[in-house]
């Protein structure tokens, strides 16, 4: 990694300020999960198409800015490139396009799609008797979609123990359709479940590395906006907001002062 999670958050804030785009609180909730995935899976930023790579699918596609910032930290491209975020003709849209960004496996955005595609990738790897693992990151809000649970049932029934689902439990649906006790639910569906602090990279890595005979779900207990007090305490207000110059200064100070 060429950047710390704190620096990644600062990059996200600066790009969001400059572009006027970004789902900052949701990006902040998944930074450590993404860092753990990219620290765990087999990949080569210099050869994004390497056939021996594991696959990662960002099913909660609106965390794209966080995804880009983490990929940049893992040397896929310079962070300066991402400053065109959301602009006309940019390769870095507010939802990632696999045909434009090297290393992005699936173009996502509409919720409830990526996990099914990831299950298909895992199934294909099984058929090919490959040891490829497939990782996907889904949101708790996204899991309001029935297609998420269809994919989970298919993965369990198909014995896809090469599929790891990271469930970003940031509580974003508390005001709408909350999913209490997600670990119990995934276990009831037949998954191998771990529940960890989603902001502890080492704990996440440990959880990701464990393998059982079932599809694995790592429930990452996170805080939406984690890393900046203003964001974590007002994540609904900041869901799709970009900071102005003064807010940027304050948020960068908050990130700098955040006690890990």
């Amino acid at each position: 990694m060429n950047a710390t999670p704190r620096e990644i958050r600062a990059n996200i804030l600066r790009i969001s300020h400059g572009s006027g785009h970004g789902h900052i609180p949701t990006c902040f909730s998944v930074i450590e999960s993404l860092c753990a995935v990219y620290s765990t899976m087999r990949h080569d930023p210099q050869k994004p198409e390497w056939t021996g790579r594991d696959r990662f699918v960002l099913s909660k596609g609106h965390a794209a800015l966080g995804y880009y910032a983490v990929m940049s930290a893992f040397d896929y491209f310079p962070i300066e490139d991402v400053h065109t975020f959301g602009a006309f003709d940019s390769n870095f849209g507010c939802h990632a396009d696999r045909l434009k960004v090297p290393g992005v496996e699936v173009s996502t955005g509409s919720l409830g799609h990526g996990i099914g595609v990831a299950a298909g990738m895992a199934l294909a790897a099984k058929i090919a008797r490959s040891d490829t693992r497939v990782y996907t990151l889904i949101g708790d809000g996204e899991s309001n979609e029935g297609s998420v649970w269809e994919a989970i049932m298919v993965a369990v029934n198909g014995g896809l123990d090469n599929l790891t689902v990271i469930y970003d439990a940031n509580g974003s649906q508390g005001r709408c359709l909350p999913i209490p006790n997600p670990a119990e639910r995934f276990a009831a569906f037949g998954c191998d479940v771990a529940e960890v602090d989603g902001h502890d990279i080492d704990a996440m890595k440990t959880a990701l590395q464990e393998k059982g005979g079932k599809p694995r779900v790592v429930v990452a207990k996170t805080v939406k906006g984690w890393g900046a007090r203003t964001l974590s305490e007002n994540f609904h207000e900041w869901h799709r907001r970009s900071p102005n110059a003064e807010e940027l200064r304050n948020l960068l100070e908050e990130v700098d002062a955040w006690a890990v």
Binding site: G112, G116, A118, A119, G120, M121, A122, L123, A128, S147
Partner: peptide
């Protein structure tokens, strides 16, 4: 694979299989 009565997943899974060749 008689995968189930879950047509949305059938399409997504098939797309993922296509992604792998």
């Amino acid at each position: 694979y008689n995968m189930g009565i879950c047509e949305n997943a059938l399409i997504s899974v098939a797309a993922g299989m296509s992604a792998m060749g």
